[in-house]
Amino acid sequence: MTPFPTIAALARRTNPLAALAALAWLVVVGLPLYYLVAVSLRTREDYLTAGPLAPPSSPTLENYATVLDSGFGRYLLNTVIVSAASVALVLLLALPAAYAIVRGTGRPLRAGFSLLLLGLAIPAQAVIVPVYLIITRLRLYDSLTGIILPTVAFLLPMAVLVLTSTLRDIPEDLYEAMAIDGGGPVRALRTLVIPLSRPGLVTVGVYVAVNAWNGFLFPLVLTQSQDRRVLTMGLWSLQGQFTSNVPALMAAMTLSVLPVFVFYVIGRRRLVGGLTAGFGK
């Protein structure tokens, strides 16, 4: 039987600086979340009379009902459409591109990969005017498609980079075994690459979903009607509508953050695995 460690042994294993850093990080992350949820469950009178960090004396869901009656459902649906379409398009384009880069040997592929990576150095703010002109010429202004296409274009370089690193972890022996069995590149992509690259696919999916969900610049410049607003634009308009109703505004922010938080918690392990894949080689 393994003896229990003594207090002295536990003290030697303990890192006080790391523990303090973890505690400080917990406070930095947890305090805003507590404030967000606690205030959203309070009435306006309770918020004005009690302290900002005081727990709600009589929790209520009235603020959430008020937000949902203010068009929040439309903003949420538009954001879900934009995020889901962006994730689907990025995965559909990035995985074959990464597969061609990893398995290909021609100079055009390497040159194309280098050119694609230049997109990481170009901020969207620097090219928003050309993007606006392209979207208007394509007659996609004030549409969800006009938001989706630029979002996919600017998230694609990072997605290809992550998937390229993931695919390099697949052993060469597996490709050779697939070739001996008569499998071509398409079959290898379908039966070998896709199953073994799931951590990278989850990483890209979470990355694209979070960025598309929180996107503000493209919806601001490329849309104008209320029916095409996403959550970021909706929160901006609700901020003016609920200027004096802070609990209702916190309820809107809680509803907008909750789906992304749940999505991240579900895929966080594969997210870390996909981000570190291939970089140890």
Score class of each variant (00 low, 15 high):
V206G: 04
Y207L: 15
Y207A: 14
V208Y: 07
A209R: 05
A209Q: 10
V210L: 14
N211R: 12
A212E: 05
A212T: 06
W213F: 08
W213S: 02
W213N: 02
N214S: 13
G215L: 09
G215I: 11
F216C: 05
F216Q: 11
L217V: 06
L217G: 02
L217Q: 05
F218A: 07
F218V: 10
F218N: 05
P219D: 05
P219E: 04
L220E: 06
L220R: 06
L220I: 05
V221S: 07
L222H: 01
L222T: 04
T223L: 04
Q224L: 06
Q224K: 03
Q224P: 02
S225V: 03
Q226T: 09
Q226M: 07
Q226R: 12
R228A: 06
R229C: 01
V230Q: 01
V230R: 00
L231M: 01
L231V: 01
L231K: 00
M233N: 08
M233Q: 13
M233A: 10
M233F: 03
M233P: 02
G234Q: 00
L235N: 00
W236C: 08
W236T: 13
S237F: 15
S237N: 13
L238N: 00
Q239P: 09
G240E: 13
G240M: 08
G240P: 05
Q241H: 12
Q241R: 14
Q241S: 12
F242L: 03
F242W: 06
F242A: 01
F242K: 01
F242N: 00
T243G: 13
T243K: 08
T243E: 13
T243Y: 13
S244D: 11
S244E: 08
S244I: 09
N245F: 09
V246Y: 14
P247I: 05
A248L: 10
A248W: 06
M250V: 06
M250T: 11
A251P: 03
A251E: 06
A251D: 09
A251T: 03
A251Q: 04
A251L: 09
A252R: 03
A252Y: 04
A252H: 01
M253D: 13
M253Y: 12
M253E: 14
T254S: 14
S256G: 11
P259C: 04
P259D: 07
V260T: 15
F261I: 14
V262H: 05
V262Y: 08
F263R: 02
Y264L: 14
Y264D: 09
V265S: 12
V265M: 14
G267A: 15
G267P: 01
R269L: 10
R269F: 07
R269A: 11
R270N: 09
R270D: 14
L271K: 06
L271C: 07
V272H: 11
V272N: 08
G273P: 11
G274F: 05
G274W: 02
L275D: 09
L275F: 12
